[in-house]
Design a protein around this nucleic acid. Structure first.
Lengths: 238, 238
DNA sequence: AACGCTTTGTACGGTAACACACAAAAGATT
DNA sequence: AATCTTTTGTGTGTTACCGTACAAAGCGTT
């Protein structure tokens, strides 16, 4: 991965026609996001939208009880800021960088103006909104019916896809938070996966050793969402 | 409730300015949907979109194992057919009528044309799409952290809101399917609620006796979603 | 080397919801 | 009245994950 980032490394941007992408280019700026960085607080309006390249941004809901729990993760398959495209300045969730990496960022106002004027741009962003709806819907199905083993496997695959790497920085604690379970439960299942030679990990760094096996362990949800993204935004490059 | 239905009984339609609503009127047709009716199969394209008046439409995912499980329910606060607005002809979920009632229906093609031309209409529909995203996101949070008692209470309130009535036709079986739990679990919790005088029920008919108490029993999620709908689409009439 | 912080490991009782099995009751059908 | 179907009730053992507590190990800092 060179230090130069092409816009088509993000699948939403890649779904645009060359001329629309050209129109966007002057307003896209590559930035690096640090792990744990808080992008926006629940209910606050934001200055930029983000098109991830090789990082994962997670949305969290802060419960009245004080704890927070993950809602979804966004990576190179999508964008953070659909709400702004759909006409809402804020969302009731906060956004945190789950794994560090790069993004294309763009000012909200600029995107909104372009979206209003350029039909083809709007079409693509709305298709992503729909893909996004499917992604969350499938999460509802998944957590109701699938075991923690399946969910953890799926989450590791998703993070791997977003980080563009087989290994990434992520503690059991952070995963537990995202999946809405105890840290100890993650440790236990992760231990099983390690015993079976599917993954390895050490102090916050996880590596996927046997991807096919990991895919076999996770539920249909992973594929359902993946297919829907391909259908709506076109096949991924890799 | 008279036999004549005004468009503003649906909150998405009610959010439109008078002139936009006028433009839609010729294409809206009131229909009655029977309980259990299958509106569209997973992956099939549909001829109409629906703006519910006093019924609930549920989305279901058919799992590879054969069972199906609820994803979300749609009533007078929304519409069935956002996917078509966002540019997708199909979704990977099927739609079933959970409680019978009336809808405004409209041909997909007509809505798509109007949406493309009329900015104000598009704005409102996209705001609903965003509200919809919040609704599902909150479902993810809810089923992870809240007890079945809370979820059942919430579901009964939601159905009551959609049916525009304190009592409605709904068996434990159907609720269980929607919430993704066993029928026996629903029977047990519902029995508790009945003992406490919060609800009463009999062979498929449920009545809410003490709404305030029921609201007290359910989690914050109900209010979070309600507020977000109000913020995006304006306050409800009632 | 000593200390502290972060991350991971393990153990134990508790509980909410599960799977399965079957009974009872209320309407519907003949 | 007898039968059938749908809906609801109940009981028994099982399981996945929880809450809590604490130990061990890895890494950084001084």
């Amino acid at each position: 991965m060179s230090h130069h980032h092409a816009p088509d490394q993000n699948r939403v941007l890649a779904a645009l026609q060359p001329q629309e992408l050209q129109a966007l280019l002057p307003y896209l700026k590559v930035t690096h996001l640090k792990s744990g960085e808080l992008l926006v607080e629940s209910g606050e309006s934001m200055s930029h939208v983000y098109f991830p390249i090789d990082c994962a941004i997670s949305l969290f809901y802060r419960m009245e009880s004080g704890e927070s729990t993950g809602v979804m993760a966004i990576g190179n398959e999508g964008m953070f800021g659909v709400a702004q495209v759909l006409g809402s300045d804020t969302i009731p969730y906060c956004a945190v960088v789950e794994t560090a990496g790069h993004v294309f960022q763009m000012e909200v106002a600029v995107l909104q103006q372009l979206t209003a004027r350029v039909d083809a741009l709007r079409s693509v962003l709305l298709l992503y909104a729909q893909a996004s709806l499917t992604q969350i819907s499938q999460a509802v199905v998944c957590e109701k019916h699938h075991s923690l083993t399946q969910q953890l496997s799926q989450h590791l695959l998703l993070i791997s896809d977003k980080a563009l790497a087989d290994d990434f920085v992520l503690t059991h604690e952070v995963i537990a938070n995202m999946l809405g379970v105890r840290r100890e439960s993650v440790t236990e299942i992760a231990g099983d996966l390690r015993t079976q030679g599917v993954i390895d990990y050490n102090r916050g760094r996880i590596r996927i050793l046997d991807r096919p096996k990991l895919e076999a362990m996770c539920c249909e949800c992973y594929e359902v969402v993946k297919k829907e993204f391909s259908r709506l935004l076109g096949k991924a490059k890799s």
